[in-house]
Design a protein around this nucleic acid. Sequence first.
RNA 1: GCAGGGAUGGCGAAAUGGCAACCGCAGCUGGUUUAGAACCAGUAGUCUGAGAGUUCGAAUCUCUCUCCCUGUACCA
Length: 1029
Amino acid sequence: MANIEKKDISMHYDFKEIEKNWQEFWAKNETFKAENKSDKPKYYVLDMFPYPSGAGLHVGHPLGYIASDIYARYKRHKGFNVLHPQGYDSFGLPAEQYAIQTGQHPAVTTAANIKTYRRQLDQLGFSFDWSREVRTSSPEYYKWTQWVFIQIFNSWYNKDTDKAEDVERLIAKFSTDGTANVNAVCDDDIESFSAADWKSFTDVKKQEILLQYRLTYLADTEVNWCPALGTVLANDEIVNGVSERGGHPVIRKKMTQWSMRISAYAQRLLDGLNTVDWPQPLKDSQTNWIGRSQGASAVFNINGHDEKIEVFTTRPDTIFGVSFMTLAPEHELVAKITTPEQKAEVEAYIEATAKRSERDRMADVKTISGAFTGAYAEHPFTKKPIPIWIGDYVLAGYGTGAVMSVPCGDQRDYDFAKHFKIDIPNIFEGVDISEEAYSDKDQTIIANSDFLNGLPYKKAMKLAIYELEKLGQGEGKINYRLRDAVFSRQRYWGEPFPVYYVEGMPQMIAPEHLPIKLPEVDKYLPTETGEPPLGNAEVWAWDVNKSAVVSNELIDNKTVFPLELNTMPGWAGSSQYFNRYMDPHNADEIFSKEAIDYWQDVDLYIGGSEHATGHLLYSRFWQKFMFDKGLVPKDEFAKKLINQGMITGTSAFTCKITDFILTGSETEASDDLILDLGDQEEAVLKLKKLQENFGNTFISFDYLEETYEKQFRKFPIFVRAKEIPVLSSKLLTLDLSDDISFVINPIHVDIDLLSKIKEGSTIKYTDELESEMFYNWRAENEDSILIFNEDSKFKVYREVEKMSKSKYNVVNPDAICEEYGADSLRLYEMFLGPLEQSKPWNTAGITGAHGFLKKLWRLYHSGAEGAFAVSEDEPSKDSYKTLHKTIKKVEEDIENFSFNTSVSTFMIAVNELGSQKCNSRKVLEPLAILVSPYAPHIAEELWKQLGHEGSISTVDFPKFEEKYLVESSKEYPVSFNGKMRFKLELPLDLSKDEIEAAVMAHEKTEKQLQGRTPKKVIVVPGKIINIVG
RNA sequence: GCAGGGAUGGCGAAAUGGCAACCGCAGCUGGUUUAGAACCAGUAGUCUGAGAGUUCGAAUCUCUCUCCCUGUACCA
């Protein structure tokens, strides 16, 4: 193609030139800038806040962005004032880890990553209003994160009004009535006092008390400490007992930490779920996370002690079935009540459970363990003694850390009782409990239970609670699993707290002095004394006179005080960002009243389901708090939420020899086997030799394929050396017996190390490893031994997994944009399948989407040598029909977020218009608008060529008109007993009887019936005819 | 264990009670053209995971079973 021709973009579809031009046009004209004042109705479309990682985007990331962009563009065509902002959640661990390794300031790497991200986003043609961009790590932004924190600190939760209120109100109540009329969500161990007491307290004491009520408070908390990361993690940052990021072990540790009293909002967070249009699985996981259970608390006296055991139970109706009590090993009463005889056993048990890591306890739920304390509790009604045990199946962190054990009604209690031979009384009428506990509630009739005899579950429960209350030994209670959220992190790259300490008590810095900027440090690791990284800062003290951050040397604890060394967690900055977008550059307020009143809330929120119990729960909490304070008009921030499905990639694995089994027949690990062998020393030597020769060895997958199939398609694979001649002969040359087995495990390799073949225009990955590239890939592979197959090739094992950098199976969108353009990529990503389902990526298929765009272009360029040619003629009836059925379908599809089906609708339309040789403006103009949300660049270009000035983006969406689709006749499928046999064209205005007559008179009907008389003829006008008989 | 989702050509999928497989990829045949490619015309496949039920009619609704995916788990 000559260069001259290439410049004339009207001649052929030059997507590179088109996309570049229009991206420049949009940026220059601020086409997508949203105004905070408009006569149009508002619509707010938001993508979940991206963290700008160093790896950049892969093809899985834009899926949600493309969907939300189509919707935003569609809403603009529909006359809405659309807010579609984007920004960066730019504080976070990866940048800090990188800083620790390289010494580079996280701000520098973050800025570089954002640049890459922005370039990649821009190249996809998204209609973001970039004038509203925010970054959580910029002081202008985190000023307001700090500001919200101060508001939360200055609030308490009043149960009477069921909302957050200013702490001043609480102080006023204390001053007039003491704690008498205070009904607050607060710490468990609060003291009661009178108004006079309050006035007599010292200032420090008052502050201490208030901390027990504030919605964010400082307290010694059992936290999940991750030694490898040097920080505390929230529950949702831990997966399977190890850190979500990096997979490091996590231990429990007591530390003084900021916490958020999210538990105050447990019920409202639950109730709010009924008011939002969010996916059910997401709602379910929040419901489970909050974990409401209704029941009763019951207090058991302990024989010979003043202390009492309080338990929470959801089955107070089974209280006569209690045959023992179980305390968590960590329970504070354990040490006090244990008898001298049982002391040794109990202490040994506590020590043993403490040693078991969280991970072991999770992996091993079957083993029953516990110890008897020697002490007895007293049953509230029967007054009989009940033995008190400890067991690690009772969790210290849930309820009171103690349970009343009812073995006949709870399987865990049942197993425990069986194991320790404790009595299992049956309190259910007509139920056999000799094999397992009976936990069904609905059909239960209580027996052997004094005043509860003969009652069903619900009535028994009410009566039991009533009787407990009468005794003063219990009450009806609702318990939540949701714990207060730890809000401190021992990290550098996060929001600093606007907090300094006077006599150990936290003080807020006045809002007018915000932001408190993150100080500079020499290194990003904890200090030698174990303080968080901010402990390395030299200028990190607060001067109350100057109202400024000053050098640590000036700390005198009179006018200059130390500042908080922790920083805020990742979710701090993302919990209000959707509101800040409404007025992102406001320096005086978090957002103006006009802005929040106009935009209200997010209408459509699109993002991944991994945020279900983290970001999406915390944000709802902050929003409800802001609502209580009258700052926002809605107490739920997002009306509708969609989780886009993930894109999967085909990972490649090399099969590595990871272990040896000396007997050759068993599938046991080598450690266990040594014990069985006569000559241990010989075995050790043998293993050593094997390790030396096969320690870093990989084997081509085709040797293993058969064995893999046989072993239930699971790794590790156990193969006998004898079965693989290459291995067997190598063993023999090493003077080793081939009567051994190898244990083989898969190790990820980058799919870029596979050899590629060109197939048509696309590049396809094979299952073959390029060995030279493999040796050079990573240092540890340099000396690797590859065992090739008979054809001297090395095959890898392939498996479909979530596309992820860590799995080395990512496909980069840059190369695809380069070859096919953003419009092709956008269409293809939507074409793959339903938005919410996960689907595999296959780059080869993109040619279909690209081919469609070329055909679309040709519709408008039917002139000589592909020149632009559009006629002013009236389109044919068929063309009108094609257009209007397309309008109808595309509109329905977008409203239902069914983007994949509208792409195929476009393809059909273009194929039909092509064969109709349609080039009428009256059809092609609306068609360009229909396509524009999906493929905006080509649509803009065609719009311009059609002679329009300015962007297509706010042109009215074409109006569907039914009249073009009205048909006068219908080709009826004629079925016999439900099977379609032939078709018959009949006018649509025939009545049922007329249709039946016409069908029965038809010769083919006679042929089908072969003389039989039909029992019944079903006629559904406009649809189908079915003849039975 | 519990909760949710799913199973349709070789692959991704469409059809939500009425003609199964629109559309695309891959395949095959032919044409045209090329340095490579592109383009055009045509074409095959299989019977909706298994079994039962409701119905004139079921991929679709109901029940049972099998398998897969995702989330979650000693929560009293």
